[in-house]
């Protein structure tokens, strides 16, 4: 019998603890498949953040080290500088990468650190219960914007990927989503390209993944997928934001 679907080697035999409809499980699987296909399981060091994905090391069957909130890019820098042969990726949420860790992210990018950031944008702080994130959309309701995010009081959704594209040390930045089979395939392609950028020693790479959080969005999983495609992509358009890899 022909096998058409199986667990990637880079994922442990452990059931995900994520909520029904959560995008993390898909993103994890996509990354694990790429690691398998590129034969990197022995070389990868992953850095999960505090947040829903803090237990990522229970799922990924690669070396992993938990980072303090927002410091993923700094920890990745330390690892890569100490051991340049490693393929280092951070796995960070929007609060982690684009709020508390903005400085670490921008400066690691500017130094052109040979690391890859997987940036999960779900427009809320998930683990802490759905507070406003830097990427929360205008008029989106969260537990700390109960009347909807107002530009006057809370500012605008932060487009960190576009900002990072202006930084010279970044080489490849793409925004994708895990909101449909087609987008999931595009996400996989982007992750592969980001890792390849690092292997080729070209500079900093980042894949921003728009990811559903049905529980905190108070939506059904399917509705959450649709909200990404209809609402989130208006503010955060999908596609390659920067590619100077020459490939």
């Amino acid at each position: 019998m022909k096998q058409v679907y199986r667990r990637p080697h880079s994922l442990k035999k452990a059931p995900f603890h994520y909520c029904p409809g959560c995008g993390h499980s898909i993103a994890h699987r996509v990354i694990a498949e790429v690691i398998d296909e590129m034969n990197l399981q022995d070389k990868v060091i992953g850095i999960p953040p505090p947040g829903c994905s803090v237990f990522a090391y229970h799922y990924f069957d690669v070396d992993m080290v938990e980072s303090a909130h927002g410091r993923g890019a700094a920890v990745a820098t330390g690892i890569k500088r100490a051991f340049p042969q490693a393929i280092v990726f951070t796995y960070q949420g929007d609060g982690d990468l684009a709020a508390i860790g903005t400085a670490e992210t921008i400066h690691a990018a500017n130094r052109g650190e040979r690391i890859t950031a997987i940036f999960i944008n779900n427009a809320v702080y998930g683990m802490t219960g759905g507070q406003m994130a830097p990427t929360t959309l205008l008029s989106q309701k969260t537990t700390t914007t109960p009347y909807g995010r107002s530009a006057q009081l809370e500012g605008y959704p932060l487009k960190i990927s576009e900002m990072l594209a202006l930084v010279k040390g970044t080489v490849y930045i793409e925004r994708t989503a895990v909101s449909s089979p087609a987008n999931i395939m595009k996400t996989k392609k982007a992750v592969r390209k980001a890792f390849q950028t690092q292997i080729d020693d070209l500079g900093f790479s980042l894949v921003e993944i728009l990811s559903p959080c049905p529980v905190n969005w108070k939506m059904a999983p399917l509705e959450a997928w649709q909200w990404i495609e209809k609402e989130m992509t208006k503010e955060f358009p999908l596609g390659v934001i920067k590619d100077v890899t020459g490939k």
Partner: peptide, 17 residues
Amino acid sequence: AESELSAINMVYGASVA
């Protein structure tokens, strides 16, 4: 580094390695 926070977390990374 860009800050002391960053510097100590780089230390953490290098120590892990």
